[in-house]
Design a protein around this nucleic acid. Structure first.
Lengths: 159, 159
DNA sequence: CCTCAGTTATTCCAATTTGAACGAAATGGA
DNA sequence: TCCATTTCGTTCAAATTGGAATAACTGAGG
């Protein structure tokens, strides 16, 4: 089990992790000009697409972060007036989060530069014809990773 | 400036970030079985390839983390007996880090599972013939990102 | 030898993030 | 209805991370 990786394989793996990491950092640097972290930008952008608001639970799931982590971020965003918390109408435990006007303005202000960066470092680098196959490949990897219970090995665990 | 992204482009970008992030998390989960973070694993693996040890400064640069962050991690690893700090011979300010035997054993124990995971979620998912072009594309993106001064835009800065 | 700028590693502090624990509320079965 | 189980959002403690400040050291010139 676990044959050694050949050079292409190893480099492909390293490049994938590095590309994701560097992309993340570049985006973070760009968004910092608007005083937003990548997570905050994702939250605001998601809320922008959901004018009716989202439950904390659903938002945490979409962002793939813990609920406590979301509580922290929403608190920060609320302090800055970017979002508003509202009690759920049907479920008294629930909390709905909505984008407030300042938050809408902020995310709109950040979007153009964000797109420009993504285009400059990624889309314009890849041959136009390569985008679709690349996307397909990456999505396969994502699906595969999502299917995994995060590398938990209940079977045959040689723990 | 900043035309809108079409569907393939947007999905490719999202998939890249998601793939990198999920890969990172999966690797983290797998390595946690050996009580190592991905950063710690990278540090130990790097030291494994440098039997003579490395300067703190050089190691921080390779890991692409701050020096204070490296100080913290090396302290943790030293407490656990995985690495050893030694004063530089030529520069009294310098500190060399070397892999200790327990660290060597630990990283060796973690490697097979690591390779297996990478193979399972990434390399075996991608068509064999797609590996090389994928690697090439990703490396182009990495190069492009590395060349950037982290998205600093001195021009037009309305700060 | 002394001074001054530059470098190195560390310490300190603020910001994030997660998991566990918690209180409140919903849900299902007897 | 009553009680056990789940779910929801928050609070708390612990770990990690980067940036600023700091102490020690190097090298070049006086």
């Amino acid at each position: 089990m676990a044959r050694m990786l050949d050079d292409d394989e190893l480099r492909a793996y390293i490049a994938l992790v590095a590309a994701g990491d560097l992309m993340q950092r570049s985006v973070a640097a760009q968004l910092s000009e608007h005083e937003l972290s990548t997570l905050q930008f994702s939250i605001l952008a998601t809320l922008l697409a959901h004018p009716d608001g989202l439950r904390m639970r659903d938002l945490a799931e979409r962002m793939v972060i813990s609920r406590s982590g979301l509580t922290y971020q929403i608190t920060q965003l609320e302090i800055r007036g970017f979002v508003v918390r509202t009690a759920s109408t049907d479920d008294d435990r629930g909390v709905e989060v909505q984008l407030a006007e300042p938050g809408r303005e902020r995310v709109r202000a950040a979007f153009p530069g964000h797109l420009e960066l993504v285009r400059g470092v990624f889309l314009d680098v890849v041959e136009p014809g390569q985008i679709a196959p690349l996307r397909a490949t990456l999505e396969q990897v994502v699906d595969k990773l999502r299917a995994r219970p995060l590398a938990k090995r209940s079977v045959g665990g040689s723990d």
